[in-house]
C-alpha cells in the first residue's frame, strides 16, 4: 500500500513538473532556464554571424572600412582572451542589438577598455554561408573602431 502511494506521489510530482515546464517555456519564448526548447545545431546550412577583433594601431586610416577576407585583414589578430571576454558574447551582442546608438557602442568599448591604452581595435562582423558550389564563404565586414576614449561605427554599416 505504501509503495503504491509512493508511486502515485512520484507520478503526480512528475506530471506537475512537466506541466510547469510547458507553461514556463510557452510564456517565455521557449526559454526559461533550465527549461529550453532550443536544441543546438537544429537548423543546418544557415548563414552565421560571428565577431573578430584586429589590432589596427599601425594600419593607415584609409584601410579601415573595407570588407575583406581573412587573408587580407589589416593589422594583427587580437585575442579576446586578453580581456577575459567570451567571444560568444560579442558575436551575439552584435547580432541581437537593435541599433548602434551611443549606449550600445559604449557597452562594447568598455569591454575592451583595459586594452585600448595607445591602441586601436577594429571589431569585425564575420558572416559565413555556403555558396552554390557548397563551399564555405566568409565575409569580414568592419563594424566598430575602438579608441581609448571613443568608438566609431562604420559609416557604411547598415
Amino acid at each position: 500500500m505504501k509503495k503504491q502511494k509512493t508511486l502515485f506521489r512520484q507520478k503526480r510530482f512528475f506530471w506537475a513538473l512537466f506541466l510547469t515546464q510547458a507553461l514556463l517555456v510557452a510564456t517565455h519564448l521557449g526559454e526559461f532556464w533550465p527549461f529550453s526548447v532550443y536544441p543546438m545545431f537544429s537548423q543546418a546550412g544557415r548563414t552565421w554571424t560571428r565577431s573578430l577583433v584586429r589590432d589596427v594601431s599601425e594600419t593607415p586610416s584609409n584601410q579601415y572600412w573595407q570588407s575583406r577576407t581573412l587573408e587580407t585583414l589589416p593589422g594583427k589578430i587580437f585575442a579576446m582572451d586578453e580581456v577575459g571576454i567570451n567571444q560568444n558574447d560579442i558575436a551575439n551582442y552584435i547580432q541581437k542589438v537593435d541599433s548602434w546608438d551611443a549606449e550600445n557602442k559604449e557597452n562594447i568599448r568598455v569591454l575592451f577598455k583595459s586594452q585600448l591604452v595607445d591602441r586601436k581595435l577594429l571589431l569585425y562582423e564575420v558572416k559565413g554561408h555556403l555558396n552554390d558550389q557548397k563551399e564555405v564563404i566568409q565575409d569580414y565586414k568592419p563594424l566598430l573602431l575602438m579608441y581609448q576614449d571613443s568608438i566609431i561605427l562604420n559609416p557604411q554599416f547598415n
Partner: peptide, 18 residues
Amino acid sequence: EHLWLWLGERSVDVLSQT
C-alpha cells in the same frame, strides 16, 4: 557540407578567442 559550415563558424570563434 553542414558540418563544414559549422566548422567554419567555430574556426572563427577559436581564432577570435585565442
